Lab assay of single mutants.
Amino acid sequence: HNLTITQGKLFFHYNPKLCLSEIHKMEEVSGTKGRQERNDIALKTNGDQASCENELLKFSYIRTSFDKILLRWEPYWPPDFRDLLGFMLFYKEAPYQNVTEFDGQDACGSNSWTVVDIDPPLRSNDPKSQNHPGWLMRGLKPWTQYAIFVKTLVTFSDERRTYGAKSDIIYVQTDATNPSVPLDPISVSNSSSQIILKWKPPSDPNGNITHYLVFWERQAEDSELFELDYCLKGLKLPSRTWSPPFESEDSQKHNQSEYEDSAGECCSCPKTDSQILKELEESSFRKTFEDYLHNVVFVPRKTSSGTGAEDPRPSRKRRSLGDVGNVTVAVPTVAAFPNTSSTSVPTSPEEHRPFEKVVNKESLVISGLRHFTGYRIELQACNQDTPEERCSVAAYVSARTMPEAKADDIVGPVTHEIFENNVVHLMWQEPKEPNGLIVLYEVSYRRYGDEELHLCVSRKHFALERGCRLRGLSPGNYSVRIRATSLAGNGSWTEPTYFYVTDYLDVPSNIA
Score class of each variant (00 low, 15 high):
residue 411 V to I: 06
residue 265 E to L: 09
residue 235 L to S: 07
residue 380 Q to S: 07
residue 348 S to P: 13
residue 319 R to I: 05
residue 376 R to D: 15
residue 352 H to N: 04
residue 311 D to P: 07
residue 504 Y to V: 12
residue 229 D to E: 05
residue 429 Q to L: 10
residue 247 E to R: 12
residue 486 S to M: 00
residue 444 S to Q: 11
residue 250 D to M: 12
residue 412 G to N: 15
residue 485 T to K: 10
residue 354 P to Q: 12
residue 447 R to G: 03
residue 290 E to G: 15
residue 315 S to I: 12
residue 222 D to H: 15
residue 430 E to F: 08
residue 399 A to S: 10
residue 308 G to V: 15
residue 497 T to G: 10
residue 330 A to L: 02
residue 447 R to S: 08
residue 422 N to M: 04
residue 494 T to Q: 02
residue 410 I to L: 10
residue 245 P to R: 13
residue 239 S to P: 10
residue 465 E to M: 08
residue 498 Y to E: 10
residue 290 E to S: 10
residue 231 C to W: 03
residue 256 Q to R: 06
residue 367 S to R: 09
residue 346 P to T: 14
residue 440 L to K: 05
residue 499 F to L: 11
residue 407 A to W: 09
residue 297 V to A: 07
residue 468 C to W: 11
residue 222 D to E: 06
residue 265 E to V: 07
residue 251 S to A: 06
residue 503 D to I: 00
residue 390 R to V: 10
residue 501 V to K: 03
residue 222 D to S: 10
residue 225 L to W: 13
residue 387 P to K: 15
residue 417 E to S: 08
residue 317 K to S: 12
residue 408 D to Y: 01
residue 446 R to W: 04
residue 508 P to S: 04
residue 250 D to E: 12
residue 309 A to Y: 05
residue 376 R to I: 13
residue 408 D to L: 02
residue 346 P to K: 10
residue 319 R to W: 06
residue 255 N to D: 09
residue 239 S to L: 13
residue 385 D to S: 02
residue 403 P to T: 10
residue 383 N to M: 12
residue 314 P to Q: 04
residue 484 A to L: 02
residue 302 K to L: 10
residue 436 G to T: 07
residue 203 S to Q: 05
residue 241 T to C: 12
residue 268 S to Y: 05
residue 383 N to K: 03
residue 509 S to T: 13
residue 343 T to A: 15
residue 209 I to D: 11
residue 212 Y to T: 13
residue 291 D to A: 10
residue 383 N to I: 07
residue 385 D to M: 06
residue 487 L to C: 13
residue 306 G to C: 11
residue 436 G to Y: 01
residue 370 R to I: 14
residue 361 K to L: 09
residue 296 V to P: 10
residue 386 T to A: 08
residue 464 L to K: 11
residue 248 S to R: 10
residue 354 P to I: 13
residue 470 L to R: 01
residue 204 D to A: 14
residue 377 I to A: 06
residue 434 P to A: 05
residue 286 R to W: 07
residue 437 L to P: 04
residue 388 E to V: 10
residue 226 F to R: 13
residue 310 E to L: 15
residue 374 G to M: 06
residue 287 K to L: 06
residue 349 P to Q: 02
residue 283 S to T: 07
residue 475 P to Y: 07
residue 361 K to Y: 13
residue 383 N to T: 08
residue 303 T to E: 10
residue 369 L to H: 01
residue 438 I to R: 01
residue 455 L to F: 11
residue 501 V to W: 02
residue 322 G to L: 12
residue 323 D to E: 11
residue 369 L to V: 09
residue 278 K to L: 05
residue 489 G to I: 09
residue 417 E to A: 13
residue 434 P to M: 04
residue 432 K to Y: 09
residue 277 L to R: 12
residue 295 N to A: 10
residue 243 S to G: 08
residue 207 G to C: 01
residue 311 D to F: 15
residue 263 A to H: 06
residue 279 E to P: 08
residue 407 A to D: 04
residue 330 A to K: 15
residue 392 S to M: 02
residue 331 V to Q: 13
residue 269 C to I: 13
residue 231 C to Q: 02
residue 256 Q to F: 10
residue 337 F to K: 06
residue 313 R to D: 03
residue 275 Q to Y: 08
residue 434 P to T: 05
residue 477 N to Q: 04
residue 228 L to D: 11
residue 281 E to R: 10
residue 379 L to T: 04
residue 388 E to G: 15
residue 334 V to W: 13
residue 242 W to A: 04
residue 227 E to Q: 09
residue 383 N to G: 03
residue 384 Q to A: 02
residue 284 S to K: 13
residue 240 R to F: 14
residue 345 V to K: 06
residue 329 V to K: 05
residue 477 N to S: 05
residue 209 I to P: 12
residue 232 L to P: 12
residue 423 V to D: 15
residue 211 H to L: 10
residue 505 L to P: 12
residue 452 E to H: 04
residue 297 V to K: 13
residue 307 T to M: 11
residue 284 S to R: 07
residue 389 E to T: 11
residue 445 Y to T: 03
residue 430 E to V: 09
residue 241 T to E: 02
residue 313 R to E: 15
residue 214 V to E: 00
residue 509 S to P: 12
residue 382 C to P: 01
residue 338 P to R: 11
residue 302 K to P: 12
residue 449 G to D: 11
residue 418 I to T: 12
residue 423 V to H: 09
residue 414 V to M: 05
residue 478 Y to W: 10
residue 248 S to E: 04
residue 366 I to D: 00
residue 504 Y to M: 04
residue 472 G to R: 06
residue 231 C to A: 02
residue 356 E to N: 13
residue 402 M to N: 05
residue 216 W to C: 09
residue 427 M to E: 14
residue 222 D to A: 13
residue 489 G to H: 14
residue 218 R to L: 13
residue 367 S to M: 04
residue 380 Q to A: 09
residue 403 P to W: 13
residue 407 A to K: 06
residue 356 E to L: 09
residue 447 R to V: 06
residue 427 M to H: 04
residue 270 P to F: 12
residue 390 R to L: 11
residue 454 H to Q: 12
residue 227 E to A: 07
residue 318 R to Y: 06
residue 343 T to N: 10
residue 328 T to V: 15
residue 314 P to E: 14
residue 290 E to C: 03
residue 475 P to L: 04
residue 418 I to M: 01
residue 219 Q to V: 06
residue 337 F to G: 14
residue 504 Y to L: 13
residue 264 G to F: 03
residue 203 S to G: 10
residue 405 A to P: 06
residue 381 A to W: 01
residue 448 Y to R: 14
residue 223 S to H: 11
residue 421 N to Q: 08
residue 243 S to F: 08
residue 321 L to D: 05
residue 205 P to E: 02
residue 260 E to M: 13
residue 487 L to N: 07
residue 356 E to M: 13
residue 352 H to Q: 12
residue 348 S to L: 12
residue 295 N to M: 15
residue 270 P to D: 15
residue 440 L to S: 08
residue 387 P to H: 06
residue 371 H to S: 13
residue 455 L to P: 01
residue 470 L to I: 12
residue 291 D to W: 15
residue 286 R to C: 11
residue 504 Y to W: 09
residue 372 F to A: 11
residue 371 H to C: 09
residue 277 L to F: 11
residue 378 E to W: 09
residue 224 E to R: 13
residue 439 V to Y: 15
residue 241 T to L: 04
residue 320 S to C: 09
residue 398 S to K: 09
residue 416 H to D: 01
residue 279 E to F: 04
residue 373 T to H: 10
residue 333 T to G: 14
residue 309 A to G: 12
residue 247 E to W: 07
residue 265 E to T: 13
residue 296 V to D: 11
residue 257 S to K: 07
residue 316 R to H: 10
residue 454 H to L: 09
residue 449 G to T: 12
residue 313 R to A: 12
residue 234 G to M: 11
residue 483 R to K: 12
residue 259 Y to S: 12
residue 477 N to R: 08
residue 364 L to V: 12
residue 303 T to D: 14
residue 271 K to R: 12
residue 296 V to Y: 07
residue 442 E to I: 07
residue 292 Y to H: 04
residue 207 G to I: 03
residue 300 P to H: 11
residue 496 P to F: 09
residue 299 V to R: 15
residue 337 F to D: 07
residue 470 L to S: 01
residue 397 V to H: 15
residue 281 E to I: 15
residue 328 T to C: 06
residue 449 G to K: 07
residue 401 T to I: 03
residue 292 Y to K: 11
residue 483 R to H: 04
residue 260 E to K: 01
residue 220 A to Q: 14
residue 247 E to P: 11
residue 275 Q to A: 12
residue 440 L to T: 03
residue 289 F to P: 07
residue 443 V to H: 00
residue 224 E to A: 10
residue 439 V to M: 04
residue 440 L to E: 04
residue 209 I to M: 12
residue 477 N to F: 05
residue 418 I to D: 01
residue 456 C to K: 02
residue 305 S to K: 13
residue 422 N to P: 01
residue 255 N to Y: 07
residue 276 I to D: 10
residue 339 N to C: 08
residue 460 K to F: 07
